[in-house]
């Protein structure tokens, strides 16, 4: 029961931690534009060379492209193929790709295993069970190979060695341990990895009957779940913000009637930048700072 309780706590931390990160980012003030081309929006011909609506005369009178088709295609290539790494750091790519696919398949196999548990007892689900088994087998093989490769690259390759820290190695070792113990469990018969989810859900009181490696694997997973929201690994979903809300956010104020109101709030924020040409002193608003065009220090007058 303790194992199940710990996993439950880890899941709460996982979901709450990630939710807090997302909500905090969503609640940040509307920022200034900082887009970067190519942006996967607009006519395909223009996307081919990275052009924008600024190439059209009277662009502010033309309709905005609201389709997300190209954005989705871009994201899929990045997530499934790690296109950016492929184009810019080939030596890292194969190992990074293996690790990422190891993770994707592990998550997929776990979801399938959960589906298996939720199906009515006695239903025939041999194919599903086989998919779970093969999913875990492939996930752990790819993930372990990727992790080991990345550990070697991180320790040896001159391009990354100097920027590899204790925490970077720790993260890889953690992932590697999960995949390695998973591999060991694949040979543990009915008490192995492929029945882990059903055992956790259906038989929490008998968990003591599992081999030690099973408990180590579950403990590592539990730790990983609670640890994940506090790491840079959250890039898995935070890319939505870095791409969609920053890099691809080319939405002009002319097309957004609500933007002016939001920005008016920003201009009324009080600032405390202290350089002599601002000297806001925590009393001047951004509007006052901007109006102080001679740079004598808005705070001195406010």
């Amino acid at each position: 029961m303790l194992t199940v309780m710990l996993i439950s706590v880890a899941l709460v931390i996982f979901f709450a931690g990630n939710a807090v990160r997302v909500v905090k980012t969503l609640r940040m003030p509307a920022h200034l534009r900082w887009e970067l081309y190519p942006i996967p929006k607009g006519p395909e011909e223009r996307q081919r060379y990275g052009g924008s609506y600024f190439e059209e005369s009277g662009w502010w009178t033309k309709p905005v492209d609201t389709s997300h088709k190209s954005e989705v295609a871009f994201v899929l290539k990045e997530v499934l193929l790690l296109r950016g790494v492929w184009e810019n750091f080939r030596a890292l790519w194969s190992w990074a790709w293996l690790l990422h696919w190891g993770l994707y398949l592990y998550v997929l196999a776990t979801l399938l295993a959960l589906g298996e548990v939720l199906l009515p007892a006695g239903a025939s689900f041999g194919t599903l069970h086989a998919a779970v088994m093969y999913g875990y087998r492939l996930a752990c093989s790819l993930g372990l190979a990727g992790t080991l490769g990345l550990l070697v690259i991180r320790s040896w390759h001159p391009r990354v060695r100097a920027f590899t820290t204790r925490i970077g190695i720790f993260d890889l070792l953690l992932l590697g341990s999960i995949f390695a113990t998973g591999m060991l469990l694949l040979t543990a018969g009915p008490a192995g990895l492929h029945s882990m989810i059903s055992d956790l859900v259906r038989l929490p009181t008998f968990l003591g009957n599992h081999p030690a490696v099973w408990h180590i694997h579950v403990a590592l997973l539990t730790f990983f779940l609670a640890y994940f929201p506090f790491t840079h690994m959250t890039h898995a979903y935070m890319k939505y913000f870095t791409w969609h809300r920053v890099r691809w956010d080319d939405s002009p104020i002319a097309h957004d009637p609500h933007a002016a109101k939001t920005l008016a709030v920003n201009l009324q924020r009080k600032t405390s930048w202290a350089a002599p040409h601002i000297a806001a002193g925590g009393t001047a608003t951004w509007s006052e700072v901007v109006a102080d065009a001679d740079g004598n220090g808005a705070g001195k007058r406010a």
Binding site: M28, F89, K239, T242
Partner: peptide
């Protein structure tokens, strides 16, 4: 937010999500 509403979101995203992979450096 008060002092850096202008670029706070971009700043925190770039501070928090670098994987130190050095994919960018040759560019």
């Amino acid at each position: 937010k008060e002092n850096n509403w202008t670029f706070l979101e971009q700043l925190t995203l770039s501070l928090d999500h670098c994987a130190r992979c050095q994919t960018c450096v040759e560019a």
